[in-house]
Amino acid sequence: MSPQITPIADTAQDLELSERILNPDGSRIANPRLDPFVADIDSAQLRSLLRDMVILRRIDAEGVALQRQGQLGLWAPCQGQEATQIGTARAIAPEDYVFPSYRETGVIYARGAQPGDYVRMWRGEEGAAYDPAALGVAPLQIIIGAQTLHAVGYALGIQHDGAKEVAVTYFGDGATSQGDVNEAMIFAASYQAPVVFVCQNNHWAISVPVSTQSRVPLVQRSAGYGIPSVRVDGNDVLASYAVSRTALDEARAGKGPQAIEAVTYRLGAHTTSDDPTKYRGSDEEQYWAGRDPIVRMRAFLEGRGASAQLFADVEAEAADAAEDLRARTVELGPPSPDKMFDHVYSDPHPLIDQQKAWRAQYEASFEDASLEGGAR
């Protein structure tokens, strides 16, 4: 007899089956499982979560604008996914290490990224957009799902050292169809590695819907490997924080890998080279716009008596962050051509020296030709 396959739920059912603390209208609901993990969050921290999401959205919008204006080669928008990224990342301890994909602008923001850190790689000037050691974040990974293997390897090192750190890796729903992600989960489960897998199910792997990729909810994939797994409403920043906190606690306590499926939505394009109007309808986008994570958190704070001045101050701070990002991007300028030879080998190498000398000679030949033309 063939195994019973549970058809994947539609969008509304996905959300109803997800852990939640805040409804889309910002009203608070009781959640016996998660409430203890947000009970110690004070008013200042609640305001900070909203602030982080608003600033992230402005940084993201500025990144798109800079790419459109030719300042960046590419940008991977995260509009709509702010609650998942900020909520989960704010629960990660400073000593933990993060392995992101290319869309985790909010995660590196939460880990302390500076304005230039968001754009160097997308401008084509650095292999890593930031100093991985300073942020505790591996370089943004373009190869789909590869970072999950790196995270498990790092987690095995933590285990070997007897440390209390945790490795955390982020990936999208499309990556769950890659072999790397499945191999990483198998290895993590086999050796009970202290790693947390965070799947941002934004419903689209470029132009392929998640319903085509999986006949079952994605949370069942990790659970199938024996990894404790939870599905959360990824547009609820408090719930995202709480499930991340619980997963990190479990992994840190030696209970092996943990997995989170955050049900969210990519409101923008896959990247700035993509046109989402070619493969999805406006009804779907409007449905998710009505579940905007920032609007939800703002409504919650308004219900707690937050003033209009608070929101105005947050918007002003976000505008300053966007302006700073633009200024830092424009002032970067092109890198020296010789930079391409740096870090090819860890030590000086004669072949690199030869290539560097040839490049210099080649560049000089153009100057010589220009001078000769002027003399004639």
Rank of each mutant, 00 (worst) to 15 (best):
D25K: 11
G226V: 05
I29A: 07
K255A: 14
A184H: 04
I352H: 08
D131K: 06
S214F: 06
G224R: 10
A110V: 01
L140C: 04
Q286K: 13
V168E: 04
E165S: 15
L332R: 01
V64E: 09
Y170C: 07
D368L: 03
S244P: 12
V330I: 07
A44N: 10
S190H: 15
A175F: 02
Q200R: 07
N31A: 13
I5E: 08
A65S: 13
D117L: 03
T212I: 13
A253H: 11
T148L: 00
R58M: 09
P276I: 00
P139K: 09
A155W: 14
A253V: 08
Q45C: 06
G127L: 11
P24M: 03
A151F: 01
H160K: 15
D161N: 06
E82C: 06
W288C: 04
Q67I: 01
G124N: 03
A239T: 00
E125Y: 15
V230Q: 11
L15Y: 04
Q178F: 08
V230S: 11
A223G: 02
A138T: 00
Q354P: 05
V107N: 00
P228V: 06
P3A: 06
G268W: 01
R326L: 05
Q355I: 09
D10W: 11
M121A: 06
L310P: 02
A189I: 05
S282A: 13
C199Y: 08
A9W: 12
D338G: 11
G374F: 15
W122N: 01
V208C: 05
S370Y: 12
W288E: 04
L332V: 12
D131P: 08
S27T: 14
V64P: 06
A312C: 10
P115G: 01
R123P: 09
D236R: 02
A163I: 02
Q81P: 08
L49T: 06
W75T: 01
G254T: 09
V230E: 10
V219A: 15
Q192A: 14
A155H: 13
